[in-house]
Design a protein around this nucleic acid. Structure first.
Lengths: 157, 157
DNA sequence: CACTTTTACCCACTATCGCCCACAAGTCTA
DNA sequence: TAGACTTGTGGGCGATAGTGGGTAAAAGTG
């Protein structure tokens, strides 16, 4: 069941010269268990990184996106970036995907990359961008812990 | 029952060259009694240390994290650090776990480490970082006892 | 229609991880 | 006090995951 997916974990991955990215074995396993054969890769609307969805999750996401009223410019921007950037891909025999050049460029990914499991999707960062992002995240968390965002203040970690 | 867990105590542990960490026997026993076979290790959002959750506790934490609205940057940072960092591991035959290299690096752990039981989870520190942290903790407590943090003022210790 | 570029599939190598065995030191018991 | 057991640590080895490269088909372009 797609809603039970719990993707997580950092992986340092290197793309080869052809732009292929090998999905870590544990994630391949998770996707298989979930009945997913394909994945959808698209642009993040928040950061210079890519979002990678299991195909079964993407259908729900794209449905929600498509259902947004398009009189709102923000919605139109979101649709253009996410729907427009979305490419459906299958894994090759070695469990790899070819990340399309425009998307690689969008995220500044050359060779070193970092793949983050985030519940229902993955985020793919260039190694450099991720290192910077991690520092920013930590800074924000450590400075702003007293004024936590919506819903987060009551979390018991 | 996961909510009854009462992990406590400090242990000085040394990781071997492969990055393996042997969980102290008394904690292994506690986890067994609790019906936990796996553990989840992730990054702390507050300090340069790692959080180690029994798998049964983690499911609740990750569900809470995943449910946070992602339009808030603070939430996204939290999700990226905690969900993104989270790796599920099983103990090997000797009751050890292999701490993934990116996480070891995050916490600056090389060989000497300190494991703290904190109710529902563990904190894993590098020996040096923990020594420094302990000094800071004591300093803060002695100087700031009059202005205790949220909820602590009324504590009967 | 021919040529160039890209992509998909196959094979192959190497570093790493997971599992097993082994030992040393400390602790409890008889 | 001595022996047996438990616990913490080290290391070897086989399986496999991660990466690189070649080749043939397909698609795009002039």
């Amino acid at each position: 069941m797609a809603n039970d997916l719990m993707l997580s974990g950092v992986s340092e991955i290197s793309l080869d010269d052809k732009g292929r990215l090998g999905l870590p074995a544990r994630h391949r396993q998770t996707l298989r268990d979930n009945g997913d054969k394909g994945i959808v890769i698209t642009k993040s609307i928040f950061d210079a990184c890519l979002w990678i969805y299991p195909a079964s999750v993407w259908v729900g996401v794209s449905r929600s996106l498509g259902g947004l009223p398009s009189n709102d410019p923000f919605n139109r921007s979101m649709q253009r970036i996410m729907m427009g950037g979305a490419v459906e891909l299958d894994l090759d025999g070695q469990g790899r995907i070819l990340v399309p050049a425009p998307l690689r460029e969008f995220a500044g990914i050359r060779r070193g990359a970092v793949l983050l499991g985030l519940n229902r999707k993955f985020e793919l960062w260039s190694a450099e961008a991720y290192a910077a992002r991690e520092q920013e995240d930590l800074k924000m968390l450590r400075e702003g812990a007293g004024s936590m965002g919506s819903g987060a203040a009551g979390l018991v970690l």
